[in-house]
Design a protein around this nucleic acid. Structure first.
Length: 111
DNA sequence: CGCGTGACGTCTC
DNA sequence: CGAGACGCCACGC
């Protein structure tokens, strides 16, 4: 089945555990293209929330989250806080502590 | 069917 | 070390 880039992104994002966050570039790199961070964002932008995709766990490389217009005013930060994500005084996520570290076992099997 | 835009990141000068 | 250009995918017009 020809899976679109978004489908692969969704599958990987779904593996992200609560309390941890991942970056666009990280997902793209895991897919094999570290320069496809924008593609990840494009896919998540149209990600079907009905598919239970924790798109709110994806933040940028600096730990800043997407504009409030995307999810809502302070919604993403509230969701992350509810999961136990640690925030820094400047309002960004503490990547040093909450960055998702995927193990080989958590990654999809290699065809 | 083609161009421009957008939740980004890496590479090059 | 800083700024600029390119790359990737999906969607709207």
């Amino acid at each position: 089945m020809s899976r679109t880039y978004g489908q692969r992104v969704y599958a990987l994002v779904r593996r992200g555990p609560p309390g941890s966050v991942a970056t666009y570039g990280q997902i793209a790199a895991l897919l094999g293209n570290p320069r496809a961070a924008r593609a990840v964002a494009a896919a998540l932008r149209n990600a079907p929330n009905g598919g239970r995709i924790p798109c709110h766990r994806i933040v940028n490389r600096r730990g800043s989250m997407a504009p409030a217009d995307v999810f809502g005013p302070g919604v993403q930060s509230a969701l992350l806080r509810g999961e136990g994500v640690v925030f820094l005084p400047d309002g960004s996520v503490d990547m040093r502590r909450c960055l998702w570290q995927p193990q080989p076992s958590d990654l999809p099997a290699q065809p």
